[in-house]
Nucleic acid binder design. Structure first.
Length: 267
DNA sequence: ATGGCAAGTGTAACTTGA
């Protein structure tokens, strides 16, 4: 089973790319971020025609997350993080599909820092940490997939010095991510590729994509039982190479089938 | 320290992203 996350940077302007990617890679579950679309304008018809059920939490102009599931309708388990009813930004959606619970997140960017946007990022992160701990304790098979807007280590960026003041590399951001992993989550890409430089985002400036100057900020975190089923993880770089591409590439994990439960033999 | 590019809103020029 393949589970993917893709920051589309506008689901309507990227619809052709999204459909091409779904057709070619056929993920069983796909988490989308940065829809930049209202709920009413979300292209559910085209996604259904592509063979996917969908849940979405849109918002005018910015943010927005969606969960797609191949051949089934994902069953919503949560819309928005607990802990702050005043937060109206569409950044978290959670559902059950194909035997797993998937949390789709778009963690705030936080620039410029310091400032209110960075404060919001850290506050959102704390609420996410609390909810992630609850999910971990539940014992369910869970994947937390999305755009975390955190470069976990200096091995996850082409030039840490050039970005040292950026919100994505701040000690507070990295420490929060480390605390998340300390709950017992497995960073699937890093687990599969412990010594490789792997990027999921290349900004639009200074020809960073052709020069492969990227950042690893889109992550899939697996609960313990799912980590035991981890078979492969990687980045669909070809999508980033399309004309008018999103600045992120789809990132995915492949899991083996859950171990068949032993059935008592008759007789 | 700043800007480079892109998308949305809305139709000029801003806000935001990372």
């Amino acid at each position: 089973m393949k589970i993917a996350t893709f920051n589309v940077n506008g689901v309507r302007s990227r619809l052709d790319h999204l459909l091409s990617w779904l057709e070619r890679e056929a993920p069983d579950i796909a988490c989308l971020q940065e829809l930049k679309s209202t709920d009413a304008a979300f292209p559910v018809g085209a996604i259904n025609e592509a063979g996917y059920g969908a849940l979405w939490a849109g918002q005018s102009s910015w943010n927005g997350v969606a969960i797609l599931a191949k051949g089934v309708d994902p069953v919503e388990s949560r819309r928005g993080l607990p802990g702050n009813p005043k937060d109206t930004q569409s950044r978290y959606l959670e559902a059950a599909a194909h035997g797993v619970i998937v949390g789709c997140l778009y963690l705030p960017n936080g620039n410029p820092q310091p400032g209110p946007k960075f404060d919001y990022k850290l506050d959102w992160f704390e609420r996410f940490l609390r909810h992630a701990a609850t999910l971990m304790k539940s014992g369910h098979p869970v994947v937390l997939a999305g755009d975390y807007n955190v470069v976990p280590t200096d091995e996850d960026i082409y030039d840490p010095k050039g970005w040292r003041r950026d919100a994505l590399l701040q000690p507070e951001s990295r420490e929060a991510y480390a605390r998340l992993l300390a709950q017992g989550w497995t960073d699937a890409l890093r687990e599969m590729h412990p010594d490789e430089r792997i990027y999921t985002f290349w900004d639009y400036f200074r020809q960073h994509w052709p020069r492969d100057r990227g950042l690893r900020i889109d992550h899939l975190l697996l609960s313990k039982d799912l980590a035991a089923r981890l078979k492969d993880a990687n980045v669909d770089r070809w999508v980033r190479d399309l004309p008018k591409a999103s600045d992120h590439a789809p990132t995915w994990v492949e899991l083996t089938s859950p171990k068949a439960r032993k059935v008592a033999k008759r007789g």
